[in-house]
Design a protein around this nucleic acid. Sequence first.
DNA 1: GTACGTGCAAATATTTTGCAGGACC
DNA 2: GGTCCTGCAAAATATTTGCACGTAC
Lengths: 141, 141
Amino acid sequence: MSAAEREMLAVLAEHGFRATRPRRAIVQALCEADAPLTLSALHRAARARYPKTGLATLYRTLEVLERCGLVHRIQLNGESYLMACADQSLHYHLVCVKCHKVVEVHAPQAEEWLGALARQHGFTMSAAPIEVRGVCAACRT
Amino acid sequence: MSAAEREMLAVLAEHGFRATRPRRAIVQALCEADAPLTLSALHRAARARYPKTGLATLYRTLEVLERCGLVHRIQLNGESYLMACADQSLHYHLVCVKCHKVVEVHAPQAEEWLGALARQHGFTMSAAPIEVRGVCAACRT
DNA sequence: GTACGTGCAAATATTTTGCAGGACC
DNA sequence: GGTCCTGCAAAATATTTGCACGTAC
């Protein structure tokens, strides 16, 4: 079990949710994916770990995970994808619109800039990842 | 007709799409909204301008507008919203998660920072708005 | 005039719900 | 042992499609 996985289950527990088999299958599938997953890809991946995982449970689990800030929906070329991110601090996700891979970036200085910018407009940024779309090195060629 | 509206119709024309009545109603509804709209709110708003606007046409028009980069889907507290933005340059959208209002911000310096950050990771940012979630001054009280 | 778009209704697909039984703490 | 969760199937929603008819260019 990866650290990310352990972390997510811990946060779930803190919020009073149980670590059931389908939930662990879904969390594991999300953590082991190397890019965001569509709903049906996630269902397939969860079933590979716990075959009885039902679609209704997947929806219900995603709602819980999103509520806890552990799962994020991102829009890529018109499709909706799901990705896990237990990190509740402000940071960036560089998302490649071609291969869909995501690089998680912490850049305190950039965050300060953005924070200052927001403050100028009376905004208080929330501690959620900021999605930045682009093309990665491998896909640019 | 607002400048944004005119701009969107011009871009549509450039892409070879016709400015039909339902499309103009949808574009106008999007441009006049002071916050992103849900699909059904947009349908209602479009119908207020051209009552015969059908739901299928709304879906088809949104696909066209998104393809042309004129409409963006944003996720807010689990709901999906649509907003118009004809500006194809890199900039930020400060989105209030309470009242849903959006402030469009151009900040060359912040963009340079972010660009440099992305380059360090081999990324080339695409010229799309970057959504930053937070709480606006009015809603913070 | 002729594509391109449309509204409508039917066909699909997606998401939610109710409930009897199972599994986590 | 008592809830909280689950799978299943049915219900409710949301989205797409086919087609005969309009209308923008």
